[in-house]
Nucleic acid binder design. Structure first.
Length: 428
RNA sequence: GGUAGGUUAUCCAAGUGGCUAAAGGGUGCAGACUGUAAAUCUGUCGGCUUACGCCUUCAAUGGUUCGAAUCCAUUACCUACCA
């Protein structure tokens, strides 16, 4: 199966240039690239789609290049943004690039002999170029009339509130320059990216044609949207990051488990790699999901596959066990062994044993300490509303104090707010 | 530069001297139902406080008043029309 068929089946092709010609080209291995701007020191689940697309190409024998946007990231891409962005300092950029590189390395294969992935920083080829040279060599090929017509720029020009700075306006030139350089130096013939990158990609295609006389291609991936209209990858608490320090593995797993029924099959196609879940399996999961949605087999498989991919098999197993214990219905008679499985998996907080002696610590304070309630007032409301459980027993007494007699196995307290928010408090 | 209008809590938005921590809606949080769903219904939704209550908030600063989100002045930003 060609990579294009594969992507189409997964619903991952939003648009592409010269489809017929590209199909022909892609019959043999080609080199392609996708850029990632280091706007934070971790990638998040939203970045996975283009990144995994690179991986998909690689699995079918193509040569992927991941471009860390040291140069472009210092400018800020106006595409899809409604407001001018704050420029990042050089130190932050350096830090972000270093962190993101580590994550990229985990998702692409840099070791394979046949078609190893490459990672480059576009700062490496923009550094030595003077502003004047850039204007003469590159700027000359761009028509402002065309640039202004591009969606990303026009949207900002029409919005009188925000406008667009000259800096962000120029972003397109840098990205186009990247494509041209990669084509020239690495024979890169295809750029992929999110559908908001269309304008930048086509700019690169034109520049490459004008400068090198080469016909290169672009392919965009769809913007992932939740059926309920909310933004994919964002929860009330913020984005879901790949870095376990920002989003714990357990939360990451839970994020996928909580996928809306209507989205789950689509997301299996978008996010899983054939090496983890085969096409047949996705199709059979789709059937199961329709026949028997309450089993949530598709959700479980999606969460397992994603956790395995990003955090590895040990972390995945721990999450599965912890989730099984907490949501399996047998928490009341939990054994010490089982409990030790969820400690550290579920958010865990420590408390000094001394505080639990005698009168103990007020429950409201413990809720705040555990991070389950933002303030004591809110904690009180949570208790009154019937949303707080100590060791899975509902507690509605606001004045309740937690003492050492509440400890399970002499050291843990299992706090829960609402249905899904667990925190283990460990005395020490 | 001129004229007119605007800036309210997490978001949208009402409020034009005391009854206003401030209507309504969204989002969020929690409860019931359920499948760790969806839909629906209920409660809650500035901070502190067991509570009476106290404190901070209606762009910023200063003023009028017993009392201001509401009136006045200045400043900043935004919008529309004109130049």
């Amino acid at each position: 199966m060609s990579i294009i068929d594969e992507l189409k089946w997964r619903g991952l092709v939003a648009d592409c240039t010269d489809a017929a010609e590209l199909e022909k080209k892609i019959a043999a291995p080609i080199t392609l690239y996708c850029g990632f701007d280091p706007t934070a020191d971790s990638l998040h689940v939203g970045n996975l789609v283009p990144l995994l697309a690179l991986r998909r190409f690689q699995l079918l024998g193509h040569f992927p290049i991941a471009v860390a946007g040291g140069a472009t990231g210092s400018i800020g891409d106006p595409s899809g943004k409604t407001a001018e962005r704050q420029l990042l300092t050089q130190e932050i950029l350096d830090h972000n690039i270093a962190s993101v590189k580590v994550q990229l390395a985990k998702l692409l294969d840099f070791e394979t002999k046949q078609n190893p992935a490459r990672l480059v920083d576009n700062a490496s080829w923009t550094k030595g170029i003077s502003f004047l040279d850039f204007l003469r060599d590159i700027g000359k090929h761009f028509s402002v009339n065309q640039m202004v017509a591009k969606e990303s720029v026009r949207a900002r020009m029409e919005d009188r509130d925000v406008g667009i700075s000259y800096t962000e306006f120029s972003y397109m030139l840098l990205q186009a320059f990247d494509f041209m350089v990669l084509c020239r130096d690495a024979n890169c013939e295809l750029q992929i990216g999110g559908s908001d990158q269309w304008g930048n990609i086509t700019a690169g295609i034109e520049l490459t044609r004008k400068k090198l006389g080469k016909h290169v291609f672009g392919l965009t991936l769809p913007l992932i949207t939740n059926t309920d209209g909310s933004k994919f990858g964002k929860t009330a608490a913020g984005a879901i990051w790949l870095d376990p320090k920002r989003t714990s593995v357990y939360k990451f797993y839970q994020f996928w488990i909580n996928t809306d029924d209507r989205d789950v099959i689509r997301y299996l196609k978008y996010f899983t790699l054939p090496e983890i879940i085969s096409r047949e399996e996705i199709e059979s999961l789709g059937k199961k999901h329709i026949e028997n949605p309450e089993a949530r087999s598709a959700h479980k498989k999606l969460a397992a596959a994603m956790t395995l991919l990003i955090h590895g098999s040990n972390a995945m197993l721990s999450c599965q066990i912890a989730s099984e214990i907490l949501f399996g219905g047998s928490v009341e008679k939990i054994s010490e062994e089982d409990f030790s499985e969820i400690v550290g998996e579920v958010p865990t907080k420590e408390i000094e044993k001394l505080k639990l002696d005698g009168a103990g610590i007020p429950l409201v304070e413990l809720l705040v300490h555990a991070g389950l309630s933002p303030s004591k007032g809110q904690a009180r409301k949570d208790i009154e509303g019937g949303g707080v459980n100590i060791n899975n027993v509902r507690e509605v007494n606001v004045a309740r104090a937690v003492t050492s007699s509440d400890l399970l196995f002499g050291k843990h307290i299992l706090l829960r707010k609402g249905k899904k928010n667990y925190v283990v408090v460990t005395a020490k």
